[in-house]
Simulated assay, not measured.
Amino acid sequence: MKKIVYGLFFGDSITYGEYDGVFGGWVDILKRYALQKFHEGNGDELILFNLGIGGETTEGLLKRMPVELRARNSTDGNLVFISYGANDLAIKEGMQIVNPEKFKYNIITAVQHAQEFSNDIYLVSILPISKNIDGVVVSSGKLRSNEEVITYNGILKDIAKEYSLTYIDFHSALFEDKEVLLSADGVHPNEKGYGMMAEIAIPIIEKYL
């Protein structure tokens, strides 16, 4: 009998797929891929939920995560992807939105929530930012730096190691060609960048198809 497994993608606008008018972002590419495989009659059904919300930090995640997990809980199993940090690390009006210590606490709490519903939890790296906005206050009033991205990714890597989770390193994959793979705002990927992210993530979801 075929299983129905759910995949829940928690994140911000990069999870949502903002600025990709072609494919709808990396999670939507994965959704279509999983659906295509199911229609081809291969293996189990994997239903993916894009739970990305633009501008969200780990503070917002913790408020909604238990409800979202309960609402989308498959008896055959769940995958949980946690993709945060680009908004947490931003500095606005001289203050970091979510400081590193609080970010670490929030991610660990999110992992613990996820563990109640899943044995398959993935932590997703924060992407690099364009040199044009590195350390620059942009029109939204936020300042981000690649130095902070590395600090926060270090926290994610440490938590992944401590809790035996898989860390998906989009940062390393996109870093060298970031000026070509990011959109004009220097934060979100363009369709090429999202496409590359999907290529990296497809082998992960293949295991459940």
Rank of each mutant, 00 (worst) to 15 (best):
P189Q: 08
N50L: 01
S172V: 02
S140I: 10
V98Q: 02
K142M: 13
K207E: 07
H171T: 00
G54P: 11
V111I: 04
I129P: 03
S74I: 04
G24V: 03
H171A: 01
G193E: 06
G77M: 09
F170I: 04
F81A: 11
I97R: 10
V137E: 13
R32W: 13
M196C: 12
I204K: 02
Y33I: 09
G43F: 12
H171V: 00
V80Q: 08
L174I: 06
G77V: 06
Y84Q: 03
E59M: 13
L69M: 10
T109S: 14
D185Q: 15
E59R: 15
T75S: 15
T57M: 00
T109D: 11
K161H: 12
D88T: 03
H39L: 09
G17N: 01
L89W: 07
D177M: 09
Y122T: 06
I155D: 01
V22Y: 11
D134T: 07
G54F: 04
K2I: 15
N106P: 00
Y105P: 05
L8T: 05
D44S: 11
Y33C: 13
L48V: 01
K207C: 04
T166C: 15
V27I: 11
E40L: 14
S139K: 08
Y163M: 10
G85H: 08
L174A: 07
W26V: 02
G55L: 05
E101N: 13
F170K: 02
I168W: 00
Y163V: 07
K178S: 10
G186N: 07
G43R: 11
D120P: 15
S139A: 11
S183Q: 13
N50S: 01
R64F: 05
G77I: 15
V137Y: 09
L127D: 05
F81Q: 12
V149A: 09
I82E: 04
K161P: 04
G94H: 11
F23V: 12
N78K: 12
L209E: 07
A160T: 07
Y194F: 09
M95A: 11
L182M: 07
S83I: 01
Y84R: 04
S125F: 02
I108L: 13
K104S: 08
Q36C: 09
L123Y: 01
E68N: 05
K131S: 14
M197C: 14
G43K: 13
K2W: 12
L30Q: 04
F49K: 05
A184C: 10
F103G: 03
I126D: 00
K37P: 09
K178C: 14
K37M: 10
